[in-house]
Simulated assay, not measured.
Amino acid sequence: MRKMAMMLAASLFMLSSVPAFAQTAADQRDECLLASKNCMNQVDDIQQRIRKLNREIEKGTRVYTPQELKKLQDKLKETSDILRNLERPDS
């Protein structure tokens, strides 16, 4: 009886820890950059945003899907274009 109870407790423990392991890749995502979620207290200047986007793109397909990577690359291009336009002297 004791052995059965220990096996049941061990199996319940293992089953409860599986969702925590599944969330590790999702926890590495920056939802603020990707989908403008969880951005309540984040204010970045353009150069910080470019650094963050580059860092997230470097994580590659181990964290993001190919569609999400494309979206991050598009945001990086858009942000780089904004910076370039701001740096351009008025003519």
Rank of each mutant, 00 (worst) to 15 (best):
K3Y: 14
M4Y: 15
M4L: 15
A5T: 07
M6T: 10
M7I: 09
A9P: 14
A10Q: 14
S11Y: 01
L12N: 10
F13P: 15
S16K: 03
V18Y: 00
P19I: 10
P19M: 10
F21Q: 07
Q23H: 11
Q23F: 13
A25D: 04
A25K: 02
D27F: 04
L33N: 02
L34I: 03
A35V: 04
A35P: 05
A35W: 02
S36L: 05
S36T: 03
N38G: 07
C39R: 07
N41F: 11
N41T: 08
Q42A: 08
Q42F: 04
Q42P: 02
V43E: 07
V43F: 04
D44P: 04
D45H: 06
D45K: 04
I46H: 03
I46Y: 05
Q47L: 06
Q48S: 11
K52I: 04
K52L: 08
N54M: 01
N54D: 05
N54K: 13
R55L: 06
E56A: 06
E56N: 12
I57Q: 03
I57K: 12
E58N: 12
E58F: 06
E58H: 13
E58D: 14
E58G: 05
R62S: 15
R62K: 10
T65E: 01
P66Q: 00
L69T: 02
L69N: 02
K70V: 07
K71Q: 14
K71T: 08
L72H: 00
L76F: 12
K77T: 09
R84C: 09
N85Y: 01
N85E: 11
N85A: 08
E87L: 15
R88A: 07
P89D: 00
P89Y: 00
D90L: 12
D90K: 14
D90G: 09
S91A: 09
